[in-house]
Nucleic acid binder design. Structure first.
Length: 294
DNA sequence: CTCAGCTCCTGCGGGC
DNA sequence: TGCCCGCAGGAGCTGA
């Protein structure tokens, strides 16, 4: 589900009730998500103060005053909700039209709960349990197994045409697979890779090392633009995915290719049709006319 | 080492 | 209405 823009949207939703606040009670309602929780997970969190809520790629990172950092990954179906500790009702369960909606999540998949000092109850719900949480020491945060392997943050200056071009020149994999590799660039997933390749007019099956310089320049710009626009729109809400405050992102309405199989290409002047192909069990959407193979 | 494919888990929507 | 099948935004692991 969540790629970088959705995780950033979640971070912005949670920050007001978590930044600088103590976790009065932490609770893990099962022994594991995708991986087992670390030893004494809830005990190590209870009483800790969250210095701030950060994001790296698709990870949420909460440095604590205990010398550790809480690392959280949403996997495919992970979601946070914010409720009031008295009523357990969502505090801000309003969509963008201002109408309250029914509870978005099934409570049987509420796996982790944080009761915050300020009265907010933050719940992590994850039906598929592909998400995970871990505690690592602050001193080795950058070198921990989760973060050490990550490539550059796509919206930072560390992600540049020169750098990407150098990496791609050594890869034989198709460009779509390369961009999904978090070691190449960290934070993209299936949707935004499809969207960025369309913007850059690059065929997803193009071989990474055969991209010319101009294509790499266009690709870096397309990635930065699509991510920036998606964050500004509050991420994408597919199916019933929503932000931490219950609001729905709306960038999905701006998709040029994702989920648009058979629809006309939205590029001005292009008469192509969006096609879908499956590679290694993942759907790839692209325009059969304006995205050129190398 | 790289790369393609499979896998974990549950829920939802479409087709019959 | 109800059942079955395919599909889902991640990413670690396996084996070639």
């Amino acid at each position: 589900m969540p790629e970088l823009p959705e995780v950033e949207t979640v971070r912005r939703g949670l920050a007001p009730v978590m930044d600088g606040q103590q976790i009065v009670v932490a609770q893990a309602r099962r022994p594991d998500l995708r991986f087992p929780f670390p030893d004494r997970f809830a005990e190590r969190l209870t009483g800790a103060r969250i210095e701030r809520l950060d994001r790296r790629a698709k990870y949420l990172i909460a440095p604590l005053d205990t010398g550790e950092a809480l690392i959280m990954h949403l996997g495919m179906s992970g979601r946070f909700t914010i409720a009031d500790d008295e009523t357990q009702k969502p505090l801000r369960a309003l969509n963008q039209d201002g109408f309250a909606h029914a509870r978005l999540t099934d409570p049987k998949h509420d796996h982790v709960v944080f009761a915050m000092q300020g009265g907010a109850v933050v719940t992590f719900n994850d039906p598929r349990r592909f998400g995970y949480m871990d505690l690592v020491s602050l001193g080795s945060l950058e070198t921990c197994k989760h973060l050490a392997v990550l490539g550059p943050e796509p919206l930072s200056n560390a992600f540049s045409p020169a750098g990407l071009g150098e990496v791609l020149a050594r890869k034989t994999a198709p460009i779509k697979a390369a961009l999904l590799d978090q070691r190449v660039v960290a934070g993209l997933g299936n949707i935004y890779v499809c969207e960025a390749l369309h913007r850059a007019q690059i065929h997803p099956a193009s071989l990474s090392r055969e991209l010319v310089d101009g294509q790499v320049v266009a690709l870096v710009a397309a990635i930065k633009d699509v991510l920036t626009e998606a964050i500004a729109a509050g991420g994408s809400s597919l199916r019933d995915h929503a932000q931490a405050n219950g609001a729905m992102g709306y960038f999905q309405h701006a998709f040029a290719v994702y989920g648009r199989e058979g629809a006309p290409c939205r590029r001005a002047g292009c008469s192509g049709v969006i096609v879908r192909q499956v590679h290694s069990n993942r759907s790839t959407f692209y325009c059969d006319l304006c995205q050129l193979a190398t």
